[in-house]
């Protein structure tokens, strides 16, 4: 973890299970991290500025809210055109992220992954159909892998 110094590491380790629910949480974080509270606040602000911390916020379980269908759409796209088409798919406003990944033949023929969220499967399927139209003949096959369940969600763990 080249970009974190020891104090940042201590802070990340102290916060990776979440912010203490206290009216003034920073002294509690300071205690956990073994740092002065002024340092904690200054470093958290700095980490937000550099983007290491996106924000200090709630992560909703959207299976419990209304966004019930999460489909990983996968496509077997010509190697010659996959990058150009990937840019187009990644630019679709309903695609949260889009990656080219290696095929693993014979188990797995797909090299383009695009994650689509929707209220239900019908909405995900409509969006997948739009992706299929954009890919056209360059895509030989596609599939949608719906998530059934979150088995674990902790994010990157770093040693204290």
């Amino acid at each position: 973890m080249t970009r974190l110094d020891p104090a940042d590491r201590a802070l990340v380790a102290a916060l990776q299970d979440g912010l203490p629910l206290d009216a003034d949480p920073w002294p509690v974080v300071a205690e956990r991290a073994g740092l002065p509270v002024e340092t904690v606040m200054a470093r958290l602000t700095a980490m937000q500025e550099t983007g290491i911390i996106r924000r200090i916020a709630a992560l909703p379980n959207h299976y419990r809210l209304s966004l019930n269908a999460n489909g990983m759409t996968v496509w077997d796209v010509d190697d010659d055109t996959v990058d150009a088409l990937g840019e187009k798919i990644g630019a679709l406003e309903f695609v949260s992220h889009c990656y080219r990944r290696p095929r693993r033949l014979p188990d797995w023929r797909y090299n383009l992954f695009a994650m689509v969220h929707g209220i239900d499967r019908a909405e995900v399927e409509a969006k997948a159909a739009e992706i299929a139209r954009l890919l056209g003949l360059a895509s030989r096959a596609g599939d949608i892998l719906y998530s059934v369940r979150i088995l674990k969600k902790t994010g990157l763990r770093i040693a204290a």
């Binding site: 973890m1 080249t2 629910l21 290491i52 996106r54 200090i56 709630a58 990157l156």
Partner: peptide, 27 residues
């Protein structure tokens, strides 16, 4: 604070705290 705790306990929230951008940490 009590409601945040309840939303965490009943699974409405997965987590509350800093959202780290792992890419920027160099992992």
């Amino acid at each position: 604070i009590a409601r945040i705790q309840r939303l965490l306990d009943n699974g409405t929230l997965t987590r509350f705290g800093p959202l780290f951008n792992a890419d920027k940490m160099g992992g």
